[in-house]
Write a protein that binds this DNA or RNA. Structure first.
Length: 395
DNA sequence: AGTCCACCGGAAAACATGGCAA
DNA sequence: TTGCCATGTTTTCCGGTGGACT
């Protein structure tokens, strides 16, 4: 029985596998293409600054700004990758470290990851940060090359952990005799720089490069270029591509978004066994991306978060909205019925804020005068069903 | 003009876990 | 083994607050 289903899927896979995608990887956000259209100026500026690394000198630090999906990361990785290739051809000691400080989110782990790119293994925990730091500097000194460190999304990091690490990294060269460290900071938040210690700012931002958003035509070129490699000829018309470009251009020219749309549209087309990707597929992709994001975030919620969300739904269903106090009562009940000790209201309040940030509910602090200040929580009606369904049997 | 509600949200500290080094 | 460390979650404590109500 079950094997029939599997057989069928495997049949489908064989039948459709090669029809639309030639190489799906090309559309993945991580992929760094050989050519970056409409970023020639940025590439040139960054390369001009960093090329001195090939002489073993320390390049100026650079700071790249721009909204999400404007090619900051791609440009940085592209330039550095090319330089490292050149360096090994010229026998120059040059290495790169790339850290996304939103994913790798503590000082310890950031330093550990930077260090690992010059072959230094740091245990996942157990050491004092100062010790990790010392080991990195020693390793650098023994190695004696130029280390280019790309810190992606540093605004997130600095908001959480402060700028101590940046301060140290920026001044690390003072402690080094043989080796050099150069930084490339990447941020989405233009105001972020203001919040930095002035000394860090001036030295991290020795060179600043601003990435303007792409417009629809530029997005079209980017998609077109990738689509030619990712899809078989004749499976994706220009009309489809420009539709993706237009949708993404509406969202401040986010190229990542555009690529996602195109990739998911292709996947849908493939699933449906269509021979071409159509505008309809793109529309479906647009919906699917959003729904998938929501489902994903609900299902991956920890138990208490789920209970809180469930309580919100139940309270809001009868009244239209809910307040922290009401939700807390409901939640405490629920937790006790299931045999758990409820968390404190302070904590639940925080959980509600998190749910808000995930976009699952809408919580705004509102003063109701005589009746106190509280979060008024609302849930989008179209989400209620989905959430109820997904949280039906939380235990 | 002042009161006072019902929370907010920052800060610190407790607690739990997991790991290193010697 | 013992002592130290990082990290993540939650609790404890508490000053702060916008505006309806008196």
């Amino acid at each position: 029985m079950a094997s029939d289903i599997i057989d069928e899927l495997v049949q489908n896979l064989k039948a459709t596998k090669t029809r639309i995608f030639k190489d799906r990887e090309i559309l993945h956000p991580e992929y760094v293409p050989e050519v970056l259209p409409h970023r020639e100026n940025e590439i040139k500026r960054l390369a001009e600054v960093f090329v001195v690394a090939l002489r073993g000198e320390r390049p100026s630090n650079a700071l790249l700004y721009g909204l999400t999906g404007t090619g900051k990361t791609a440009v940085a990785r592209y330039v550095v990758k090319r330089l490292v290739e050149k360096a090994s051809a010229l026998n120059v000691k040059l290495e790169q470290a790339y850290v996304n400080t939103r994913k790798v989110d503590t000082t310890y782990r950031v330093v550990a990851q930077i260090a690992s790119s010059i072959g230094l293994r740091i245990p996942p925990t157990g050491l004092a940060i100062s010790e990790v730091y010392r080991r990195y500097i020693n390793a650098l000194e023994n190695w004696g090359g130029v280390h280019i460190v790309i810190l992606d999304e540093i605004d997130y990091y600095v908001k959480r952990e402060g700028d101590d690490l940046l301060y140290k990294l920026v001044r690390v060269n003072e402690e080094l005799k043989n080796a050099r460290v150069a930084l490339i900071g990447i941020t989405n938040d233009v105001n972020f720089v203001e919040s930095l210690d002035p000394r860090v700012r001036s030295s991290l931002g020795e060179v600043e490069i601003v990435f303007p958003p792409y417009n629809a035509e530029q997005l079209f070129d980017i998609l077109k270029q990738r689509a030619e490699k990712a899809f078989y000829p004749g499976t994706v018309d220009d009309g489809v591509i420009s539709f993706c470009a237009a949708l993404a251009a509406r969202e401040h020219g986010d190229a990542r978004r555009a690529l996602d749309l195109l990739r998911v549209a292709g996947e849908i087309a493939e699933r449906e066994g269509a021979s071409k990707v159509t505008v309809e597929h793109v529309k479906k992709a647009n919906v699917e991306i959003e729904e998938g994001r929501i489902q994903q975030s609900i299902l991956s919620l920890p138990l208490h978060q789920k209970l809180v969300l469930k309580s919100i739904i139940e309270v809001a269903k009868s009244k239209g909205n809910a307040t922290t106090g009401e939700v807390y009562l409901k939640y405490s009940d629920m937790a006790r019925n299931l045999g758990f000790e409820p968390l404190t209201q302070r904590r639940v309040s925080e959980i509600i804020s998190q749910l808000d940030m995930l976009g699952l509910v809408n919580a705004t602090v509102t003063s109701r005068g005589r009746y106190g200040v509280t979060k008024v929580i609302r849930v989008k009606p179209e989400l209620v069903k989905t959430i109820e369904e997904l949280l039906k049997d939380v235990r």
